[in-house]
Amino acid sequence: MDSWLRKMVGAAVKTGPVPQHVAFIMDGNRRWARRAKTETVAGHSMGFSTLKKTLEWCLDLGVHMVTVYAFSSENFKRSEKEVGDLMKLAEEKFIQLLNEEEMIHRLGVCVRVLGDVKRLPPSLQQAIGKAVDISKDNTRAILNVCFVYTAREEMAMAAHEITQAVQEGELYESDITEHLVEQCLYTNASPPPSLIIRSSGEVRLSDFLLWQGAYVHLAFSPVLWPDFSFWDLVKCFLQYQQSHNAITTALRRRAEHLSTQQLDLDTAAVVHNSKDGSLPPAQVRRLVEQRQEGRARRVQAFLSTLHDRRNSFFHSLAAKAQANKNTRAQE
């Protein structure tokens, strides 16, 4: 009866606009554990079960991209025991995922881990590397797991990549635009989310997707994450549908504004660079087009290098994991 009702409601929700990409701040595991008078790690474990169910509901509702805030860089400030338990739990879940490789490919799931993975224990790094590497070519459902992540670190990382590229001559200073910064963020392979859901009644972003969250519907759900249900998700989706038009209009206006602003900047630069400053309009247009084409080429080449570098990082972790496995097998 329940599943029949869910199917009906799911189909009804899908008659309205469904967000392409949804992000979750899974807050409230520890409070849930305290309330249930159990260990903190049990709360996190329960939170993982809710995540699994939520991903299934998202797929049923037609969402194929999900980003979750699993571990913030700030969480290292927690007690050593809790951080250790979280690391163990994460490793266990990534290994479980790797054991279901056939299912990953059958469902077409691509797992990406966003954050400063190098700060994690080597065994967890290798499990992550393998999971990311084996699923990288799947496209049907994308799961971004933010691990050792803060949005400020993400923006600083993008800024670092860009300034390095300018220093090495791959990019020009005038190539630095909002579009370029956005394309250098960890989330560059997916469009920005349309809906961010935070559980547990807290009403802040806590350093999560600050850049990408600029034009997003924010849904603050009062329930603790382990208690988050299908009906809570449906409620957030219905709320999002009421904002959909406003978000679409705001994004379109923003894109138009940026494009006009860039055109003005390029035109001004072309006129400024000309010797006498009195070029005929047709020539200005042609030079502006050349300038924009040159930028597009440089940015494309740079982004492709960045993408390859990130992929090869995870590939090398996966290779290390395989080498360790082989060594253990020989022993």
Binding site: G213, A214, Y215, L218, F220, Q239, S243, A246, I247, A250
Partner: peptide, 8 residues
């Protein structure tokens, strides 16, 4: 009118 930050 809607819970969106509009680039804040």
């Amino acid at each position: 009118r809607e819970p969106v930050l509009h680039g804040l």
